[in-house]
């Protein structure tokens, strides 16, 4: 059973003697219904004009004034705390929704970023690109020619160095690797023809080398 003024008694033991004229407070009843009624009354007051008539409230509730004041203070404190919690909750919700909006925006940005980049690429003026392409083509052809020349010589040299010298210069090897790949892509007949078209002087040089003259 719920504690109330009937089934529960509170003894307050105080050291010292009883002050003169001190009387125990009268027994009264206080419960949730009264508390709700008190809150309805005190929370609807216009404090700029009205003032709480504690004496009247005390009569209405049959409760001592000090107790009513304490409960009123407590009720306001609790409701202020509740209000603060609600404000924090709303702030959190707003923050969460803002975060969601931001996330959505970032998703959109991520989604459209590739197209924007492509657009940028497309928007780049055509002339520099073509010149670049032309330049690169020129460089490529030069490199190919040089490589072919190197290949021709290297093939000759390989003929005699396969057995004697297995170590090649790394830079040359790198260059050759790249070119060999390109050449391998072509037909082996081309290789043969290129090897057949080796200059006489080169052959001579190789022969002389082989014969150690």
């Amino acid at each position: 059973m719920i504690m109330n003024s009937t089934n529960t008694v509170v003894y307050i033991k105080v050291k010292g003697r009883r002050p003169q004229g001190f009387l125990d407070p009268p027994k009264f009843e206080w419960n949730g219904t009264k508390e709700r009624q008190l809150w309805t009354m005190v929370s609807n007051l216009n404090y700029s004009q009205d003032q709480i008539d504690w004496q009247n409230l005390s009569k209405i509730f049959e409760t001592p004034e000090f107790f009513l004041k304490k409960r009123t203070y407590k009720l306001f404190a609790e409701h202020l705390e509740l209000l603060q919690l609600q404000l924090e909750k709303k702030r959190d919700l707003e923050k969460y929704s803002n975060d969601q909006v931001n996330e959505g925006m970032s998703d959109l940005i991520h989604k459209y970023t590739p197209t924007l980049q492509n657009d940028n690429l497309l928007n780049v003026s055509a002339s520099p690109l073509t010149t670049e392409r032309q330049d690169s083509e020129e460089v490529e052809t030069e490199v190919t020619n040089e490589a072919l020349q190197h290949l021709q010589t290297s093939k000759i040299l390989n003929i005699h160095k396969k057995t004697s010298d297995s170590e090649n210069k790394p830079n040359d090897k790198l260059d050759k690797d790249g070119i060999n790949k390109e050449m391998e892509c072509g037909s082996s007949d081309d290789d043969l023809s290129s090897s057949l078209s080796v200059s006489k002087s080169a052959l001579e040089e190789a022969l002389m080398d082989r014969l150690q003259f």
Binding site: I2, S5, V14, R18, D24, P25, F28, W30, G32, E81
Partner: peptide, 25 residues
């Protein structure tokens, strides 16, 4: 604020034992 003496979050039940007696030495 409910009418059953519960706290604002409803996690407890407030009771008011108002029958108070003072005992001095």
């Amino acid at each position: 604020y409910n009418n059953e003496s519960k706290s604002t979050d409803g996690s407890d039940y407030a009771m008011f034992p108002t029958n108070i007696k003072y005992i001095f030495e």
